[in-house]
Simulated scan of single mutants.
Amino acid sequence: MGLLKTIFFIVLFYYGFKFLARLFAPYLMKKAAETIQKKAEQQFGGQQKQQQQKSSVKEGETIIDKKPGSQQESKKSVGEYVDFEEID
């Protein structure tokens, strides 16, 4: 008798879950689409803002985003360079 009860509850849970999923799936999909749309708008707005800042620079003007010594510092932290040759 216990086996039949277990099977009954499993089937009941399965069909109950399917029913609830059909009810709430459209709402969840709508919320997910809105969230993705907001993130995309924020990213696009940030890119657009950067482009406007770059376009405000006059022709012939130079902009440097990095410090001059940053490349030398990063090479020092990498380590020693070893050149390997193939042996036939």
Score class of each variant (00 low, 15 high):
Lys49Asn: 03
Gly69Trp: 03
Ala32Gly: 04
Leu20Trp: 12
Lys31Pro: 01
Ser77Cys: 00
Thr35Val: 13
Lys66Ile: 13
Gln48Ala: 13
Thr6Lys: 14
Tyr27Ile: 15
Gly69Phe: 01
Gln37Gly: 09
Lys75Tyr: 08
Ile63Trp: 05
Ser55Pro: 04
Lys5Val: 09
Lys31Tyr: 10
Ile10Tyr: 00
Lys49Trp: 08
Phe19Arg: 08
Ala21His: 12
Lys54Met: 13
Ser56Trp: 01
Pro68Leu: 00
Phe84Glu: 06
Gln71Thr: 08
Glu85Ser: 05
Met29Arg: 15
Ala33Lys: 12
Asp88Gln: 11
Glu61Val: 14
Asp88Pro: 02
Leu23Asp: 08
Lys39Ser: 06
Phe9Glu: 10
Ala33Cys: 01
Thr62Leu: 13
Ile64Asn: 13
Val78Trp: 06
Gln52Cys: 03
Leu3Asn: 10
Met29Glu: 15
Gln43Phe: 06
Glu80Gln: 11
Thr6Tyr: 07
Gly79Ile: 02
Leu20Asn: 10
Gly16Thr: 09
Ile87Thr: 10
Gln43Ser: 10
Leu4Val: 11
Ala40Phe: 01
Glu59Met: 11
Ala32Thr: 00
Arg22Trp: 14
Lys30Asn: 13
Val11Glu: 06
Asp65Leu: 14
Asp88Lys: 11
Ser70Arg: 00
Gln52Tyr: 01
Lys31Val: 15
Tyr81Met: 11
Gln47Leu: 10
Glu34Phe: 05
Lys5Tyr: 14
Tyr81Trp: 06
Gly60Arg: 06
Lys30His: 13
Ser56Cys: 06
Ala33Gln: 07
Ser70Glu: 00
Tyr27Met: 13
Lys39Cys: 03
Phe84Arg: 11
Lys66Gln: 15
Gly79Tyr: 02
Phe13Arg: 07
Glu80Leu: 09
Phe9Asp: 05
Ser77Ile: 12
Leu12Ala: 12
Val78Thr: 10
Lys66Gly: 05
Lys66Pro: 00
Leu4Pro: 02
Ile87His: 09
Gly60Ile: 04
Met1Glu: 05
Phe44Met: 07
Gln42His: 09
Gly79Glu: 01
Phe17Lys: 08
Gly2Arg: 13
Ile7Arg: 09
Val11Asp: 04
Gln43Ile: 12
Gln51Trp: 11
Ile36Asn: 10
Gly16Val: 07
Gln48Met: 14
